[in-house]
Amino acid sequence: MARFRRYILIVTVLLAVLAGLGAGGYRWYKAWQEDKFLTTPPETPGREILFRVEPGQIFTTIAANLKAEGLITDTRRFYGLAVRTGKGSAVRAGVFRLSTGWVPERVLTELTSSSGVLRRVSVREGLTWWQTGGIIEEAGLGDAKGFAAAVADPALLAAHGIEARDAEGYLFPETYLLTPPKDHPSRHMAEVMIREFLKNAQKVWPQGLPPFEELHRTVILASLVEKETGDVTERARIAGVFRNRLKKHMLMQCDPTVIYGLGPNFDGNLRKSDLQDRDNPYNTYVHPGLPPGPICSPGLDSLLAAAHPEEHGYLYFVAKGDGSHQFSKTLEEHNRAVRRYQIRRDRSNYRSTRQ
């Protein structure tokens, strides 16, 4: 009996030892798998892959997509890595340039700390919406046709409080650096530019935007100022000229408005017949007051000038050929300035903007 008991005890101890060895071995195997996951890239050498994270996409979906692309080998362990490092909710939406030759931590760092693949587009002041659409298409941030549809979309305009037929004047000129969304990139670009306008408008009206009718008139005036001068120091003065002409019910007689009304097919030659065309609603040589809408995208300086015109008695201005203008209070003074700076000008060194 005693011998049997010793036998049972020995077997029990052996089983316990084996169990301990098995558990330890299993833990070692799991630790080895974890270490291998963390330190071994999926492929060597790696392949570059453009990986997109959609706005609002949950982490488990992102991890599954990473595995499907061959960028990680284990979704559960990748999720565990994100939890341990506190980055589970820090993944950004966008397009990222990743590699199958990276270890998981580098993939996670790229998704949570970089801005992804960004495209750059510079839209200068004074462009029309169709010129802007062409630039956006060249930059790969949309297409001109989609942009044309977006800027005239009643739903988009209403969403931003623009009570006009299109977003002309409200597409703020700026250098944009962003990742285009997979769907409707042209519309996204239009919305980004409108939001940028509204942000900058707060600098013009820090106490809050005025009613839309007043806002729209200011944007129209600012677009005329933008097209008439590249000299920031003169913009408030030119805005004052336009305001004085409006007060006296004088025709604005602004060439850029006529050109805008001729549309994208304008050939660069403004003819006398164009200045007499009553069918052009933007012809301020025959139609009194401001044109029916903005004629370009004005920058912040022109918006500030239009909102705060200079107080003076000038009613006319003419380009002097050095980028500045000669201002006059009477028609007689203006005619003398025209003869001096336009009719008798030296065409060899004449320029419309300061250098």
Rank of each mutant, 00 (worst) to 15 (best):
Y260I: 06
G126E: 09
L177F: 13
T257E: 03
L315S: 09
P288N: 02
G299Y: 09
L18A: 15
R339L: 12
G169R: 04
I220Y: 05
A167M: 00
N265M: 04
A305V: 02
P210N: 09
A16Y: 05
P180H: 12
S122R: 15
D143Y: 15
G46S: 12
V151H: 11
K203F: 05
A164V: 02
A201T: 12
G101F: 08
K329A: 13
K329P: 00
V232N: 14
C254E: 03
E43N: 09
L14F: 07
F51E: 01
I8R: 05
L251V: 14
A90W: 12
A239T: 10
G70E: 06
L198G: 04
D166T: 01
W102E: 08
G116S: 08
T128A: 13
W102F: 11
L156C: 08
G240Y: 11
R347V: 15
L66N: 11
I49V: 15
S186D: 10
P294S: 12
H334W: 11
L270Q: 08
T132H: 04
D279A: 12
R271I: 05
I136F: 04
R245C: 14
A63W: 02
Y314A: 00
G321R: 02
V103T: 13
A307Y: 00
T40W: 04
P294N: 13
Q202A: 14
I8G: 01
G161Q: 07
T284D: 03
I49Q: 11
V241M: 06
R340M: 13
F96V: 09
K87F: 11
R237A: 11
T128M: 13
L141R: 09
L303C: 06
T109E: 10
R76T: 10
R195W: 14
R27E: 11
S324A: 09
L71I: 14
A239S: 13
A201F: 05
D166Y: 01
G293A: 14
T60P: 00
A306P: 03
E332V: 11
Y176F: 15
